Amino acid sequence: MVDLLDDERLDYLLAEDLRIIQSPAVFAFSLDTVLLARFVYVPIQKGNLIDLCTGNGVIPLLLSTRSKAQIKGVEIQERIFNMAQRSVEYNKLSEQIELIHGDIKDMPEKLGHGKFDVVTCNPPYFPTPSDRESEMNNNEHLAIARHEIYCTLEDVVRVSSQLVKQGGKVAFVHRPGRLLDIVTLMRMYKLEPKRLQFVYPKVGKEANTLLIEGIKDGNPDLKILPPLYVYNEKGEYTKELHSILYGDK
Score class of each variant (00 low, 15 high):
Val159Tyr: 09
Thr65Asn: 10
Glu135Thr: 10
Phe198Ala: 01
Asp217Lys: 15
Ala84Phe: 08
Gln197Arg: 09
Leu14Lys: 06
Asn82Pro: 13
Lys46Arg: 08
Ala143Tyr: 11
Glu154Ile: 05
Arg195Ile: 00
Glu98Asn: 13
Asn208Trp: 08
Gln96His: 12
Val159Asn: 01
Asn122Cys: 10
Phe27Glu: 14
Gly168Glu: 03
Ile149Lys: 05
Ala15Asp: 11
Val164Trp: 06
Glu16Trp: 11
Asn137Trp: 07
Thr209Cys: 10
Pro226Trp: 08
Tyr200Phe: 04
Tyr150Ala: 14
Arg9Gly: 07
Pro193Gln: 07
Met188Thr: 09
Ser23Met: 10
Glu109Val: 10
Gln70Asn: 15
Pro176His: 07
Pro129Ala: 09
His113Pro: 07
Met136Lys: 07
Tyr90Lys: 12
Glu98Thr: 15
Pro124Phe: 01
Lys234Trp: 13
Thr128Leu: 05
Pro129Cys: 06
Asp155Trp: 14
Leu61Ala: 01
Leu63Ala: 00
Leu10Thr: 12
Asp217Gly: 15
Pro226Cys: 10
Ser94Met: 14
Tyr231Val: 07
Lys115Gln: 14
Pro60Ile: 01
Lys216Phe: 05
Ile104Val: 10
Val199Phe: 03
Glu89Trp: 10
Lys194Cys: 01
Gly114Thr: 04
Leu31Thr: 01
Lys169Met: 05
Arg19Cys: 07
Glu89Ala: 09
Glu89Thr: 10
Ser64Val: 05
Ile244Ala: 12
Leu31Pro: 03
Pro220Phe: 14
Ser23Arg: 08
Tyr90Ile: 05
Ala171Trp: 03
Met186Asn: 03
Arg79Glu: 14
Gly204Tyr: 03
Lys194Ala: 02
Val170Gly: 00
Gly102Glu: 06
Thr120Gln: 03
